[in-house]
Write a protein that binds this DNA or RNA. Structure first.
Lengths: 218, 218
DNA sequence: TCAGATATCAAACGTATGTTTTAAACAATT
DNA sequence: AATTGTTTAAAACATACGTTTGATATCTGA
């Protein structure tokens, strides 16, 4: 697959539509008509709809995971040096990387977080498999850092708290619009990702650092 | 729509399949073949696929919302009496109600939480509208209680923290099964909803009670 | 300049979907 | 026993989907 104007237009349209409607609910005809390209272009350039979905994720996730790994390396963080850094620093690193990613259209970040949430909740088998084997390294290093910062937790409780944390991130960043509509809260018009992140990080840290329920193994 | 054996069999099959695959990814033919009823039965009894989706939610949500409202009434909680109860009590009330709901098949709760998560993330327009107008009262009373317990938060920060909280609940409860599969960690084999809830509540309370980022209005 | 690769296009293919139809079987009431 | 309303059954309907085809246009490099 070479790199043409058409490819980018397809990816742009697909990213928006997938985030808005979901994967199955978005047809190739919607995408190609929004991108103003021929219907066959998707199968020509990407091979299949599933491959297009994966390509949408790659375009965002590749620079992101790269930036995160670099950030960890630059700070010289090592597992086992838990006293040298704090949970908040980790989240700041990740969220700053996230906000720095150049996006094609505005709201690109919350748009993409919504995609991540969909990938997680919607059981798109092929996508989960793809993301796992493609970006497992980044996830593993993240887990290591969390572990180093929460030595007081049993593995089980740590596991679940990490899941809660990931869930909170994916969900809250992804569904900003729906809930604001439900709550009819007009005070939240300024729902920029930067603002949400600012409020989110302390919330996550507090949850992870809460007094453990399970007694530690002695 | 009368109440026959066929209706229940359809609802049972639909509940399982929707939770497993999502709404769009589940066809009426899958449902009717699993329920061992005729294809036309769905449109006869429910009218349409969308109406069936809503019926699945009603069967679970009606007793749940009723039980929750009753719980609040029995405890005599009133807004403005924040010193009489704690956040943890509220969550316990809700989670206990949730766990007490009789389900048709085992794993019914996590099954249904997964459905709720899907309804939340997947932008099924008709479903969101239906849930809003049908169960807004329960949500509003929940918000009131949270507000009474977190007077130190600005409306904006409280709004977002509630958002984070709801996201965490929906997300974590819905992805219990997928995660346990990923884990393969025998230490976490006991991933029963009761167990997860036990770990979840303190996490949520800590997040809501975290030191506020935004300065309070004086 | 002109072949050869690359990209676009309109049209069609096969399949699966939600829904409707028509007829038959069943149940309950008169 | 006949009639009515209700439920099942099989088949067909129209539509939308992802994908493929084959012809045409566009670009590229020698």
């Amino acid at each position: 697959m070479s790199h043409s104007e058409t490819v980018d237009r397809i990816l742009d349209a697909a990213e928006l539509l997938f985030a808005e409607k979901g994967f199955t609910e978005t047809s190739l005809r919607m995408i190609t008509s929004k991108a103003k390209v021929n219907l066959a272009a998707v199968n020509y350039h990407f091979g299949s709809k599933n491959a297009l979905i994966q390509a949408v994720f790659s375009r965002f996730l590749d620079p992101l995971s790269h930036m995160m790994e670099q950030g960890i390396r630059e700070l010289g963080w090592r597992t086992g040096q838990a006293d040298h850094f704090e949970l908040e620093d980790i989240f700041r690193l990740y969220t700053q990387s996230l906000l720095k990613i150049p996006t094609r259209h505005k709201n690109g970040i919350s748009n993409f977080m919504r995609l991540l949430g969909l990938a997680y909740s919607q059981s798109q088998g092929h996508l989960r498999k793809y993301l796992e084997q493609e970006y497992s390294r980044a996830l593993v290093s993240f887990m290591r850092l969390i572990k180093a910062c929460t030595p007081e937790l049993t593995p089980e409780e740590r596991f679940w708290r990490i899941q809660f944390t990931l869930g909170t991130i994916a969900f809250s960043m992804s569904s900003i619009q729906p809930l604001t509509e439900i709550l009819e809260n007009s005070a939240n018009a300024q729902a920029k990702p930067e603002r949400v992140v600012e409020l989110l990080v302390p919330y996550l840290v507090a949850g992870l650092k809460a007094k453990p329920v399970l007694p530690p193994k002695v």
